[in-house]
Amino acid sequence: MMVNELLKDPMVLREIILDHYEYPRHHHLVEDESYHQAHMASESCIDDIHVQALIKDNIIQDINFEGVACTISTASTSMMTELLIGKTLEEAKEIISNYYAMIDGREYDEEMLNEAISLQGVSKQANRIKCATIGWHGIEQLINESEEDHDSKE
């Protein structure tokens, strides 16, 4: 079976979310001043996480996160780290906007989101959209900050 075929099986998608929740990737913070950090605390629920990223030469070199969060928030942020590490800022922004499109129930490019398509069902539970996007908003904020820094230095 092709990878893409596997990603059509709800049982597999469920397992993917569970796996990212139980074994979140890059789930630790480093004390390194070259990393930029965003504190993301939801106003409406308890999710309260820190996202940090090392952005150099227009490429996301590393992303870490940690904090108090629900399954959807933890799994979605974990998937985000895997999808975005190693990408250029332009590539990352395109993936992010595709992910938001999926969560909002709009048209999106499945290829680009890989395992994160397991979270497509969140679009049907409006109260959980914040959970599924909190880490993504964190990295988006860090990318914007990095671009502003870059612009101001030029």
């Binding site: 709800p10 998608l13 469920r14 979310i17 569970l18 929740y21 139980e22 399954t71 959807i72 979270l119 069902g121 969140v122 049907k124 539970q125 959980r128």
Partner: peptide, 10 residues
Amino acid sequence: TIENCIGTFF
């Protein structure tokens, strides 16, 4: 269970 919690999204 955690599996069933995740299951609500499918």
